[in-house]
Design a protein around this nucleic acid. Structure first.
Length: 111
DNA sequence: GCAGTGACTAGTA
DNA sequence: ATACTAGCCACTG
């Protein structure tokens, strides 16, 4: 695989890593960035997911922030329902505590 | 080509 | 324990 420097290659890498996250597990933005070959670029992962089309099959819901909480977009869509991401994760077996956070020591994906 | 922006993180108070 | 700040760099206009 060529390590392309173009935006296409970078996005493809990020999406490929996210798709590799198994159901019932979660990964942080920084973790995805590192696995995509761009350690320290967590923001770029978030930006890539932000640009992801709604119809995409990429399980973006399994990517959460380092605090173990789901990240909400800065520009909420009309179709967006708060708690939707959490609901999808719960159906996969990911448990949330009272504060709405995931125990990363338990559910963090360990590739 | 330059300036603004952001689905983040780590550090500090 | 929470709240705020600075740094980070690819993408958009």
């Amino acid at each position: 695989m060529r390590a392309s420097r173009t935006s296409e290659g970078l996005y493809d890498r990020i999406y490929a890593v996210v798709e590799a996250i198994p159901a019932g597990r979660v990964a942080t933005y920084g973790q995805v960035a590192a696995l995509a070959g761009i350690p320290g670029h967590a923001r770029q992962v978030g930006y890539a997911l932000h640009a992801l089309p709604e119809s995409s099959t990429v399980p973006w819901q399994r990517v959460i922030n380092a605090r173990g909480e789901v990240s909400t977009r800065s520009t909420p869509d009309l179709d967006w329902v708060p708690g939707f991401q959490r609901h999808l994760l719960e159906e996969e077996g990911v448990l949330f505590d009272e504060r709405g956070r995931v125990d990363l020591t338990r559910f963090r994906w360990d590739p």
